[in-house]
Amino acid sequence: MKPPQSFYDFTLQLHQDLDLVYPGWDSDTPGARYEIYEDFRQGYGDRAVRELAKYGKSLLADDKTDLGTLWFNESRADWAIPDKGVRFLFEDFLSWAASLS
C-alpha cells in the first residue's frame, strides 16, 4: 500500500524538527510527542491528521508488516527507526488523534 501524502509530510516535518524543536520527543512520558502532532495538524490541517490516522490504523492492523523497513524505504527522514519504534509512534499518534474527536 502506497503511503498517503500526509505520511510524507509528517515524516519530513518529524525529521526536520525533531531534535532541535522537540528535545524530549523520545521520552516515555505520555504526551511527550503531542506538540509534534499538534504542529503537524496546524501545518497540514485536520484532513491530513485523519488521513495519517487512517493509514496508521491500516498498518497496525497487520502485525506481520515490517514497519521499520517501510519507514526506511518510504519516509522522508534519512534515519531508520526499527519496527517496534514505528509501531509505537503510530500507536501514540493514533491515541492523540482519537483525543481530538
Rank of each mutant, 00 (worst) to 15 (best):
R87K: 07
E74N: 05
E35T: 04
R50K: 14
E74K: 06
T65Y: 02
A77F: 12
A53H: 09
L14C: 05
Y55N: 10
L100V: 02
A53Y: 09
Q42Y: 04
D17R: 15
W71V: 13
E51S: 12
R76G: 02
F93V: 11
R41C: 05
D39E: 09
Y37D: 00
L14S: 07
W71S: 03
K64N: 07
G85Q: 09
K2N: 14
F7H: 13
D83F: 08
F10Q: 06
E38D: 09
D39A: 14
L94H: 09
W96A: 00
N73H: 05
A97F: 05
L70C: 05
S6D: 13
Q5H: 14
D83C: 03
F93I: 10
A48T: 04
R87I: 10
R47K: 09
M1G: 15
F88D: 10
Y55M: 11
R33D: 01
Q5K: 13
F93K: 01
L89P: 00
Q42A: 04
W71D: 01
Q16K: 12
F7W: 15
K57Y: 10
G45N: 03
F7A: 12
I81V: 13
W25Q: 13
A32E: 07
D9V: 12
P82A: 12
F93T: 06
F90Q: 03
E35A: 08
G45R: 09
D46Y: 02
G43D: 02
F40H: 03
R87L: 05
L70W: 07
L100A: 04
F72P: 00
E38F: 04
T69N: 11
V86K: 00
L94D: 03
M1Y: 14
D62H: 06
D39S: 08
S95V: 10
I36C: 03
G45L: 07
F7E: 13
L12M: 13
S58Q: 14
R47Q: 10
L60W: 06
I36P: 00
D92I: 09
A61Q: 12
K54T: 12
V86D: 01
G31Q: 04
D39Y: 08
A53V: 08
L94T: 00
D39V: 11
S101T: 11
R33L: 04
A80D: 10
D78P: 07
G68H: 05
L20E: 15
P82L: 04
Q5Y: 07
T65K: 10
S27K: 01
P3K: 13
T11W: 14
G24C: 06
A98P: 01
D39P: 00
N73W: 07
L52K: 11
D62R: 06
